[in-house]
Measured scan of single mutants.
Amino acid sequence: VTLFVALYDYEARTEDDLSFHKGEKFQILNSSEGDWWEARSLTTGETGYIPSNYVAPV
Rank of each mutant, 00 (worst) to 15 (best):
H21T: 14
G45Q: 07
T14C: 09
L29K: 05
Y49E: 03
S31R: 15
E15C: 06
A12Y: 02
L3R: 04
T47A: 08
V1M: 14
D35F: 10
P57W: 06
F20P: 00
F26I: 05
S31H: 12
E33M: 14
V58G: 05
D9L: 03
K22W: 05
Q27V: 15
V55C: 04
Y54S: 11
E46N: 13
R13N: 10
Y10C: 04
I50N: 00
R13G: 09
V58K: 04
Y49I: 09
G34P: 13
G48I: 02
L7C: 04
T14E: 10
S41T: 04
F4N: 01
K25Y: 15
E38C: 07
L3N: 06
F26M: 07
H21A: 13
S41Y: 03
P57I: 10
T14G: 15
K22P: 04
S31P: 12
F26Q: 00
N53K: 13
S32I: 15
E15R: 09
F26H: 00
L18A: 02
N30Y: 07
T47C: 07
E46W: 09
P57V: 09
P57A: 10
F26P: 00
V58P: 04
D35N: 11
R40D: 02
F26Y: 01
G34A: 11
E46Y: 11
T2C: 07
N53Y: 09
Y8Q: 09
E33K: 14
T47N: 05
D16H: 14
T2G: 12
A12C: 05
F4W: 10
Y54H: 09
T44M: 02
D16I: 12
V5A: 05
P57F: 07
G34E: 13
L18W: 04
D9H: 07
A56R: 11
W36F: 15
W37T: 03
N30C: 07
I50C: 01
F20R: 00
S31Y: 09
G45I: 02
G23N: 06
W36P: 06
G48N: 01
E38V: 15
G45N: 09
E11D: 12
S52W: 09
F20S: 01
V5C: 05
V55N: 00
R13H: 12
V5I: 13
E38F: 15
W36I: 08
V1Y: 15
N30L: 07
T44Q: 04
K22L: 06
K25L: 14
N30E: 08
F20M: 10
A12I: 02
E33N: 15
A56L: 10
N53C: 09
W36L: 08
L29S: 05
Y10T: 01
A39F: 03
E46K: 15
S19Q: 05
A39V: 12
L7F: 03
G48Y: 02
W37K: 03
Y54G: 06
E11S: 12
F26G: 00
L7T: 04
I28W: 02
E11M: 13
E46T: 09
T43G: 06
T2N: 10
T47E: 09
K22A: 12
A56C: 07
R13L: 11
E33V: 13
L7M: 09
K22S: 08
Y54L: 13
D35E: 13
V5D: 02
A6Y: 00
S41N: 14
E38H: 12
D9K: 05
D35I: 09
G34W: 11
Y49P: 03
T43D: 13
P51D: 06
P57C: 05
F4L: 04
S41H: 08
K22H: 06
V55E: 01
P51T: 02
D9G: 05
G48Q: 01
P51C: 07
V55Q: 01
F4A: 11
T14V: 07
K25D: 02
A6C: 01
K25N: 09
T44Y: 03
A6Q: 00
L3W: 10
G45K: 05
I50L: 07
G23K: 02
I28P: 03
S19M: 04
L29V: 08
D16V: 14
G45R: 04
F26C: 01
V5R: 04
N53M: 11
E38S: 08
